[in-house]
Simulated scan of single mutants.
Amino acid sequence: MKCNIYIFILFISIILDVNAQKQKDSLEIWTYSIGNFVNLNAEKIIERKFPFKIKAVSGDVLSEESIESIEKHNSKVWNYIDSLGYNNIKEEYNLELKAEINRIKKAIEISKSNKRITKLYLKLKDQNLGNFIKLSKKDNNIYNFKVYSFDLNKIENNENLILDFSIDIKKNKIYIIK
């Protein structure tokens, strides 16, 4: 009986150790983008180009201790990735992120010039409806925005797709899909 208990404990210990190792070995760059629509989406879009995941772990207000912890973690990940043979991947990532942020900001500015879109947001606010946007990138110049609304008083209800549009930042054009 004691032997079975020891084997069981050993088995559980091995499983816990493997799971802990998996978490340590995950290649995640931590960011402070929680609550920042542009940065979160830019990170999500460019993440596909890099050999790591991007994880927002904190918002815009951070303690010095949190910043140090995030920077320490990221430094280890950058060094590890560099050791795999990548050259200046941190600089490449930062340049790509900045470019993507600028493209998304341009798309948002173009959307603000459309009367139908601006009226929709005012209408949602007047009707006490919340909204959220799902952003996707079709190609280097075209972004798709899906705007969903939900009742702030009945959050448990489903959200509704109320507008689907694409923006071509190169042509400065908006294409309303729905």
Rank of each mutant, 00 (worst) to 15 (best):
Y143E: 01
N41A: 08
S83T: 11
Y148M: 02
K44C: 00
D60Q: 11
S63C: 07
I101F: 05
I104Y: 01
L124M: 15
N74I: 10
I46A: 00
S75R: 11
Q127T: 15
K90E: 15
S75L: 11
S111H: 03
I70C: 03
K154E: 13
N87P: 02
F145G: 09
H73R: 04
T118M: 07
D60M: 07
H73L: 03
N41T: 06
G130P: 11
I89A: 09
I104C: 05
L135V: 08
K49S: 08
R116E: 07
I89S: 09
S66I: 14
R48D: 10
E109H: 09
F145S: 05
F50G: 06
Y121M: 10
S63N: 08
N88S: 12
F50P: 05
Q127F: 10
L152Y: 06
S83M: 02
Y148P: 02
I45T: 03
S75P: 01
Y80K: 15
Y93E: 04
R103C: 13
F50A: 02
E92D: 15
E109N: 13
S63A: 10
I110T: 05
V77G: 07
E91C: 02
I70K: 07
S111C: 06
K112W: 10
L124T: 13
E92A: 14
S136F: 03
E71I: 09
S83Y: 04
I110P: 02
K115R: 12
D139S: 04
K53S: 10
N74F: 04
L122V: 14
Y93Q: 06
Q127K: 15
N144S: 06
I101N: 04
K72T: 15
I133R: 04
L152W: 05
N141C: 03
E68W: 02
L135A: 10
E96Y: 05
F150G: 08
Y80F: 14
D126C: 00
E100P: 09
I70W: 00
S58G: 12
D82Q: 09
I142S: 01
I117Q: 00
K154I: 13
E96T: 15
N140V: 02
D60Y: 07
Y80M: 12
Q127R: 14
K119P: 00
K123I: 06
S58E: 09
P51D: 08
N153D: 13
L124P: 10
E109V: 02
R116A: 09
F50R: 03
E64P: 09
K105E: 13
N79L: 12
L97D: 03
R116L: 07
I70V: 15
I70A: 06
K112S: 11
S75E: 13
I142P: 03
L129F: 08
S63M: 07
K146S: 12
K90G: 08
E47N: 10
G130A: 05
S136A: 00
I104E: 02
I67V: 14
N102E: 12
I142N: 11
W78D: 02
V77N: 03
I104R: 00
I110W: 01
S69C: 10
S111Y: 04
I70M: 11
I110L: 04
N102I: 03
S75D: 13
L129R: 14
L95Y: 05
I46C: 01
F52I: 12
N144K: 13
